[in-house]
Amino acid sequence: MPPPSGPGADREAGAGYRAVFAVPEFRHVFAAHLLSTLGVVLCEIALSVLVHRLTGSPRTRAATLGDVLGEGDLFVLGRSVIRIINQSGQLAGFAAGGLLLCAMPVGAITGEALAGTFLGPRARARLTFPLGVFCVLPSLGFAARPSLGWAVLLLVLTGTGIAYNFGVDRWFVAAVPDELLGQAMTVMQAGRMTIMGLGMGAAGAAAEYAPLWVVMPAGGVVGAVSVLLVVSEVRRTGGDRFPAPDAAGIPA
């Protein structure tokens, strides 16, 4: 059998890290992951150092934003700033990869910044359910096989929905005892990352067998149903009835 030929064969024959980084698309993805990871690490180090200075406790590994900002609206806004930093790191890395990769971080940064700057705690809490549902709806537009410009717009709109986290964070802080806040945040973040990973894996697997204009709307339908089920459960259990704080972060 004759040896394979072509660009793919050349890359395989010279397999190694150099060959991997020779692929431009991989370099873009690598840069995004690197900047995102560096941002998270720097935030964690800075937070640990700050808490150690404030408390004098050597147990800085257990430090959380709650130790610094308390449990009021300052905590919610602090979480928002951290998300904006993370999205900014991703945006910087994705910038070399094209408009589609940049679209969702741009929407997320815009939505978080506008909601955190111009809306009060009560208004942000009221938008939790609407934004939670809205953020999965733009993907339905891919069923129309949009052009690049419309696809970018749909992804930007998807990103703006991340502002629903303002209300979720507020309810979370109100529901969890102060002494368990750090551990509970760890569990919550681990759960989010796990679900995100499973979702990305499922979407990638589906994209192997179906075109984009089928996979994206299907994901939107699954997301919408899932969010509506969560909204129904939260309302049934009264999880959204915690008093909204005033501008100073004090429950009204």
Results as ranks from 00 to 15, higher is better:
2 P>V: 00
2 P>F: 01
2 P>S: 03
3 P>C: 00
16 G>C: 02
19 A>D: 14
20 V>G: 02
20 V>E: 14
23 V>I: 11
25 E>V: 10
27 R>S: 04
30 F>K: 08
33 H>I: 08
35 L>T: 02
36 S>T: 05
38 L>T: 00
40 V>G: 03
41 V>G: 01
50 L>E: 10
51 V>M: 07
52 H>D: 09
58 P>Q: 04
59 R>K: 11
68 V>W: 09
70 G>I: 02
74 L>H: 11
75 F>S: 05
75 F>N: 13
76 V>K: 04
77 L>E: 09
77 L>A: 12
79 R>S: 03
89 G>Q: 10
89 G>H: 14
93 G>P: 05
97 G>T: 04
98 G>M: 08
103 A>V: 04
104 M>Y: 10
108 A>F: 12
110 T>K: 07
111 G>S: 11
114 L>K: 08
123 A>G: 04
126 R>I: 07
128 T>L: 15
131 L>V: 03
132 G>C: 12
135 C>Q: 15
136 V>M: 15
137 L>Y: 01
139 S>R: 11
142 F>G: 10
143 A>T: 00
143 A>Y: 01
145 R>W: 12
152 V>D: 08
154 L>Y: 11
156 V>S: 06
159 G>Y: 07
161 G>Q: 11
165 N>T: 08
172 F>N: 11
177 P>I: 04
178 D>L: 15
179 E>S: 09
183 Q>P: 01
183 Q>M: 14
187 V>W: 15
189 Q>E: 10
192 R>S: 11
203 A>Q: 05
206 A>G: 05
212 L>R: 14
216 M>Q: 14
218 A>K: 09
218 A>R: 06
219 G>E: 14
221 V>F: 06
225 V>T: 09
226 S>E: 01
232 S>H: 13
232 S>P: 07
235 R>Y: 12
235 R>D: 09
236 R>S: 10
238 G>K: 00
240 D>Y: 13
244 A>H: 13
245 P>I: 04
246 D>Q: 12
251 P>S: 11
251 P>Q: 07
252 A>F: 10
